[in-house]
């Protein structure tokens, strides 16, 4: 495996790579502005947003937070093991990361189907327009993250000698970004109104 030593203290080489961090900031800014807009409209229609928020099941959101944070924990462990040349352990942690990512998607799917059955679709009211738009956009990121991690796992299993640590770190940074976005979405959509 290629493990060229990288000086992370160098401004051009943050962990995961500078391009990934530019993407992370763009994503955080996009979701951040949308959440600020949601809170702004929520402040104009407090009762509507409060009653709509009560139609969500915060327990699903909390369990999904546990899924994503734990998958991020395994991702970090996977990168650490890879740095120590422990490829088998790294693959095991990567598999756990993806499993918990899938658990997140399954629970989100159950939540979505219950909402659709109850008629709480995107056009129900402004709160649910934000709910669907933001959470689906996030789910797309989780799906892309799973594909990246799947390719990384495949490459590590097939030919670990050709895998570059920087690529795995970049994939890990993308996965952690999904965590970070969820950490902003969960309290605002499920709890504060």
């Amino acid at each position: 495996m290629e493990t060229v030593p990288i000086d992370s203290k160098n401004v051009y080489y943050p962990p995961g790579g500078i391009l990934m961090w530019i993407i992370i900031f763009l994503e955080l800014f996009t979701f951040g502005m949308a959440l600020v807009a949601m809170v702004y409209y929520g402040s104009l229609e407090r009762e509507l947003f409060h009653e709509s928020r009560l139609l969500l099941n915060a327990s699903y959101g909390a369990v999904n937070t546990v899924f994503l944070l734990t998958s991020g924990f395994f991702m970090a462990k996977s990168v650490m093991e890879l740095k120590r040349q422990e490829v088998a352990k790294s693959i095991r942690y990567l598999s756990l990361t993806m499993f918990l990512g899938l658990c997140f998607l399954v629970l989100k799917g159950i939540e979505y189907s219950l909402k659709i059955e109850a008629g709480l679709d995107m056009n129900y009211n402004l709160f649910f327009t934000f709910y669907w738009a933001l959470t689906i956009f996030h789910v797309i990121h989780v799906l892309v993250g799973l594909i990246i991690l799947g390719v990384s796992t495949y490459n590590l299993k097939r030919n670990p000698a050709k895998v570059d640590l920087i690529d795995i770190e970049a994939g890990a940074a993308f996965w952690h970004m999904c965590d970070l976005i969820w950490l902003l979405l969960f309290p605002i959509i499920y709890l504060i109104f």
Binding site: S8, K9, P14, P15, G16, L69, L183
Partner: peptide
């Protein structure tokens, strides 16, 4: 406040931002 704290933990520890510039 709690969300901010969690965000800092994930970015600085899991993403190893504490080692960055």
């Amino acid at each position: 406040g709690i969300a901010v704290l969690k965000f800092v933990f994930v970015s600085f520890e899991f993403m190893e931002l504490r080692k960055a510039h």
